[in-house]
């Protein structure tokens, strides 16, 4: 069995089937992108895996069946999600936000060491550690959200639209961070509308269309596939 595996995963909103019986597999250490148009069901898929959305079908992670596990149990097993829109606690300070990430955390020493490491990784957050999350810029909030997710020492990091609403220079920076995280061995499942960026930062990709998988393959190949180029990379033939 793969590290993360969904079998016939489905998500419904009322009568609408946002995700239709999807099977995906992610191996340990991989970075896999889930791309597609707005409303294709990518975020629903990610939310179902994180346990925030009710779903049908099965989800297996690290040889455990996640299907009926509440979200906090999935965090315990090593899944951490950076939600769409970042989900920074606006009234908590930057440091408190980071400590929330270590809520189920290990010892105090580990927590202190992780905090120190995050501040080294994101000096900007150290400068602002006493400020409330709501006062940060969008890019800083995204960094905070990623750092917070890493504070739980996840085995699988789920990233939902990390580039959304950010200035291009910030997007570059965030993806640099994501590639850095991937190098440390964390498995990443990335949902992203910016298909080029997603393909450039991942090893494999699934393309979703109206709740179903349309194309899957190596990211480097998809980058050059004519269909992907015309539909998702905005390049004519």
């Amino acid at each position: 069995m793969s590290f993360l595996e969904t079998r016939l995963l489905g998500v419904r909103y009322g009568g609408i089937r946002a995700v239709r019986d999807i099977d995906i597999k992610v191996e340990e250490g991989e970075t896999v992108a889930l791309i597609g148009a707005n409303g294709a069901g990518k975020s629903s898929m990610l939310n179902a895996i994180a346990g925030v959305l009710p779903h049908t079908g099965k989800i297996y992670f690290n040889n455990a069946d996640l299907t009926n596990k509440p979200v906090f149990d999935r965090v315990k097993l090593g899944i951490s999600m950076v939600p769409e829109g970042r989900g920074v606690f606006g009234r908590l300070t930057v440091e408190e936000n980071l400590l929330m990430g270590a809520y189920l955390g290990n010892s105090q020493q580990d927590q202190d060491a992780d905090l120190k490491q995050m501040y080294e990784f994101f000096p900007r957050l150290k400068e602002r550690r006493g400020q409330t999350g709501g006062t940060l810029s969008g890019g800083e909030q995204q960094m905070l959200a990623i750092a917070r997710a890493l504070m739980s020492r996840p085995k699988l990091l789920l990233l939902d639209e990390p580039s959304m609403g950010l200035a291009p220079i910030m997007v570059e920076k965030i993806f640099e961070v994501i590639r850095g995280v991937s190098k440390t061995g964390v498995t990443i499942l990335l949902v992203e509308q910016n298909a080029r960026l997603a393909l450039e930062s991942s090893e494999r990709a699934y393309v979703m269309e109206s709740g179903e998988l349309s194309i899957t393959g190596e990211s480097s190949e998809l980058l050059h596939s004519p269909k992907i180029r015309s539909s998702y990379l905005g390049e004519g033939d």
Partner: peptide, 22 residues
């Protein structure tokens, strides 16, 4: 820690859950 979790939950139950808070 309990207090932080309470404040986080009052801001967003969904995100608080993602932190591993019951």
């Amino acid at each position: 820690k309990l207090g932080r979790a309470m404040r986080a939950t009052s801001e967003s139950q969904r995100v608080a859950g993602l932190m591993g808070i019951n």
